[in-house]
Design a protein around this nucleic acid. Structure first.
Lengths: 187, 187
DNA sequence: TCATGTTTGACACTCAGTCTCACTTTGGGA
DNA sequence: TCCCAAAGTGAGACTGAGTGTCAAACATGA
């Protein structure tokens, strides 16, 4: 990672933070890219060059999480069945909800109540699903089957549902238990 | 259903058909709403009044299918386990792929290769999932639990994955069998 | 026939996203 | 240290989606 990449990532992080703050207080649809750029002290061009779309300013961070999940999945022991491996790998995804529930709750709410964000998020998951299936198969040296992909998809659906319940409980219910309850319907 | 509603539905169907034809031959992103309106002989305003968004011209029909699935699900006998009931209900969804594979294949391809359509489709499924869970619970007089919702979500993921395989096989593989294979990883 | 509600087309407007061009900054090699 | 090539930035023009308003045409049911 060159120093340029570091600088670029720092700018990106700052822009995302400013954007999240404005979306959180005014609502995604009531903030324009011009507003975001002005608030962050950059031009409209620069903002869009960093994120491509308004949605990516919120959802861009999730790509890293998916890579982490895939990596963790690959490291789960082959003796573990797929459901258990998936359940464990998702612990990474819900770590932020434990360490910074305030922020995680605001993000989850924003995504859930904004159709454009929700749709993009689901599409992102759909894009990552094959990679999860590959990781699931690779950890036990198997080749990818439809079963791997179905289990990966089911686990993601489970995550979304558990997160939805968690959000609607204002973060009061335990996300770990909600996930366990969800996986219980699958295992 | 008044005569006005009938006329309205007829116009909608015709507009959707024209739109699908153009999307199919030129690609979703290469056709503007102006193009669609001109080809259908209506104004841009009228086209957008009927569908709201370009995407809905393609995906609008799926709402009916989801209602059908929910209705069928409610009618499955309480003696059937949830997975079997879901699997049977999905037969409705894949009926068109049997009766008119040509058209179904083109639609599936269009949705899959167009990110905007894919995202909207997934969001639609996400919106309908609670209704499926309710139907699943109602058929055996239970109240809705997270398990119902998780199973509904998993079934939808399974449908998407099976459809993806079917599309990539150019409609040559049997969608019924693909669905069975997918559900096998869950049941 | 008439009053009412619906559909339509025209048009103006906002905003997202793409593209191009010129300018500035920066990193790394000579 | 100097220099150059590459990367980042800002300005601005442009396309196209989606919203809202208005007046005219239309169909429906009394």
């Amino acid at each position: 990672m060159s120093s340029r990449d570091i600088a670029r990532a720092a700018v990106r992080a700052r822009l995302a933070e400013v954007a999240f703050g404005m979306f959180r207080s005014a609502g995604f649809d009531n903030v324009t890219v011009n507003d975001l750029a002005a608030a962050a002290g950059v031009s409209r061009s620069t903002f869009l060059r960093h994120f491509g779309t308004k949605e990516e300013a919120v959802l861009g961070a999730f790509d890293l999480q998916f890579e982490q999940i895939a990596a963790l999945l690959r490291e789960r022991p082959a003796s573990e069945d797929d459901w258990t491996a998936l359940r464990r790998a998702l612990d990474t995804m819900i770590a932020p909800h434990r360490t910074d529930p305030e922020n995680a709750l605001a993000t989850a709410r924003l995504v859930e109540e904004t159709p454009a964000l929700c749709a993009h998020q689901l599409h992102k998951q759909n894009t990552w699903r094959p990679a999860l299936a590959t990781a699931l198969a690779a950890r036990s040296g198997q080749s990818v089957t439809m079963a791997h992909e179905v289990r990966a998809g089911a686990a993601l659906a489970c995550l979304n549902i558990a997160l939805g319940h968690w959000t609607r409980s204002n973060g009061e219910r335990d996300l770990d238990e909600l996930l366990n309850e969800g996986f219980h319907a699958l295992m």
